[in-house]
Amino acid sequence: MTEPAPTEPDPTDSRTETGHERIRRLFADAESDGRAVLLPYLTAGLPSVEESPSLFSAMADAGADGFEVGIPYADPLMDGPVIMEAGERALEAGVTVDRALDVVRSVVDTTGKPVLVMTYVNPVLRRGIGGFFSRVAASGASGVIVADLPADEAAPFARAAGEHGLGLVLFVAPTTDDDRLEHVVASDPVFVYAIAEIGVTGERDDASVNIEALAERIRSRSDLPIVFGVGISTPGHASIAASHGDGVIVGTAVVRRVLEADSAVEAANDLSTFVAELRAATDVSRVARR
C-alpha cells in the first residue's frame, strides 16, 4: 500500500472515534482536499471469501476512499440482475453474515479505509437489531446501509447504531416529497444516500437527470453529506454526481467487472483501472463544485 494509513490523527482521537465520526471525518477531509468521496460497492465474498479482500485492496490503492460491502441476500428487492447474481453466487459459496463480516474485518485492517455494511432488513432482524449492530461494530465497520429500510421504520435501527457508534445511512429518492425529505434529514443519518435513478441498481447509458435538482432540494434543508448512488456507471456519470454531491457510490459497474473476470487477479486489475478512472473523475474541487 503506497498511501499512508489515512487515519493518522492524534491518537487520543482515534481511540475514541466512533464509526459515525469516522465517516463524517471522511467527508470533512475530502472537502478540504477538494474532491468528492468515492465509495465503490462490492458484494462480500467474491470470487471467494479468501480472495475477496484483495479486490478491495486493489480499489483502495487506486484511490477509493472507503467501501460499501454487501452482505449477500436471497431476495434483494432494490437490486438489479447483476447484484442479484453476485448475491446468489456468494450465497452458493457459503458467504453467511458472519463470513461477510470477516471479509469486512480484513478490508478494514488491510486498507485502513472506512467500510459501510450494506444489507437488507431481514438478516438484521433475524440476528436481533442490537446483536447485528454489535457484530458489525466488532468487524471494524463504520456504518450500515439497509436497502429496504425507509426512515419510517428506522427508529430501532438508528437507536442500535447510536449505541454501537455506527453511522446509519438513510435514503432520499427523486420520488421523495418535501415532507418526507424533512423527516429523513431530521433523523440525523450519517449521510443522505441520494438515489439518482428511479429504479433498482444497475448500469445506465445516460447520466441521471435527477442529480442537480435532488442535490439542491437536500442541500436547502440540511448540511448532511449527500452521496449519490444507483445508476452511476461511468467516470462521466461519477463526475456529474461529484459536482453536485459530496460522494459517489458505484456498485453494479464494479460488481459486473468482478463477475466477468476469470480470476481474482484479473478482477483486481480491472477494478484498479476502473477505480483510478472514477477517482480522477471525482477529484472535482470543492470550489468548482459550489
Partner: peptide, 18 residues
C-alpha cells in the same frame, strides 16, 4: 404505521414509499 399488532409495516425501498 400499517401494523397489525407487531406485524405488517412498510419495509420498502424509499423510491416506493411515496
Amino acid at each position: 404505521r400499517g401494523r397489525y399488532g407487531t406485524f405488517g409495516g412498510m419495509y420498502a425501498p424509499e423510491t416506493l414509499m411515496p
